Simulated assay, not measured.
Amino acid sequence: MALKREDDFEKRREHLRNLSDDELKERFFTLADRITDPLVELAKNSTTPSIERSVLLRMGFSSIEAKGIVERIIDAGLLGKGAGNVVLKVAEKISENYLDAGRKIAEGLHMDLAVEAFRGGSGNGSQD
């Protein structure tokens, strides 16, 4: 036997009754923003090794190279800076193209430069 739900629509919509269509639309989007703000913030400030490997794959690295790069970046505590960003900063510091720089990072080279670039070492002071 199914329970019958009491219809309370009129009572629940009372506070919205006098709003115009434009006001209802504005209220809807305000509430939608409030609901999605934490998700947007999470996406801006969080990443995973899988996401970073995916970025590196799109930059042209092989899956094996991407895995190695991400492992080195995790070990250095720089994953939150973005693997692609780390590779680009190192490439800039060593004046090489980013593919060569990334491959060197995967081999464990130049991680001191990566840390310096993001932790405010004696380099250009970039904190990106």
Rank of each mutant, 00 (worst) to 15 (best):
M1A: 09
A2N: 11
A2V: 13
L3M: 10
L3S: 07
L3Q: 09
K4E: 13
R5Q: 11
E6G: 02
D8Q: 08
D8E: 04
F9E: 12
F9P: 07
F9W: 10
K11G: 06
K11H: 10
R12K: 10
R13S: 09
R17E: 14
R17T: 06
N18L: 14
N18Y: 15
N18I: 09
L19P: 00
S20V: 01
S20L: 02
D22K: 09
D22Y: 02
L24W: 07
L24I: 10
K25V: 12
K25R: 14
E26D: 12
E26W: 10
F28W: 06
F28G: 06
F28N: 03
F29N: 00
F29E: 00
F29C: 01
T30W: 11
L31I: 02
D33Y: 15
D33G: 06
R34K: 15
R34E: 13
T36W: 15
T36M: 14
T36Y: 15
D37Y: 14
D37V: 11
P38I: 01
L39D: 06
L39N: 03
L42E: 15
A43L: 06
N45Q: 13
T48H: 05
T48F: 02
S50I: 08
S50G: 08
S50R: 14
S50Q: 11
I51A: 05
E52A: 04
V55Q: 10
V55W: 07
V55P: 05
L56D: 02
L57R: 07
L57W: 00
L57F: 04
M59S: 05
M59Y: 09
G60N: 06
S63K: 07
S63L: 01
I64L: 08
E65V: 01
E65M: 02
A66C: 00
G68W: 02
G68F: 01
G68R: 07
I69K: 07
I69V: 04
V70W: 11
E71M: 03
R72K: 14
R72D: 00
R72W: 05
I73R: 04
I74C: 03
D75A: 10
G77V: 08
L78P: 04
G80M: 03
G80A: 03
G80W: 05
K81T: 07
A83I: 09
G84I: 02
N85L: 10
V86L: 00
V87T: 01
V87N: 01
V87M: 02
V87I: 02
A91Y: 07
E96G: 04
E96K: 12
E96C: 08
N97G: 15
A101R: 03
A101L: 07
G102D: 04
R103M: 10
R103P: 11
K104I: 03
K104M: 13
I105T: 03
A106F: 05
A106V: 08
G108L: 08
G108D: 06
G108H: 05
L109F: 14
L109Y: 14
H110V: 01
D112Q: 14
D112A: 11
D112E: 13
L113A: 15
L113H: 13
A114G: 01
V115N: 06
V115F: 09
V115W: 07
A117T: 06
A117E: 12
A117V: 05
F118K: 08
F118S: 09
R119Y: 11
G120H: 07
G121Q: 00
G123P: 02
G125S: 04
G125W: 05
S126D: 10
S126G: 06
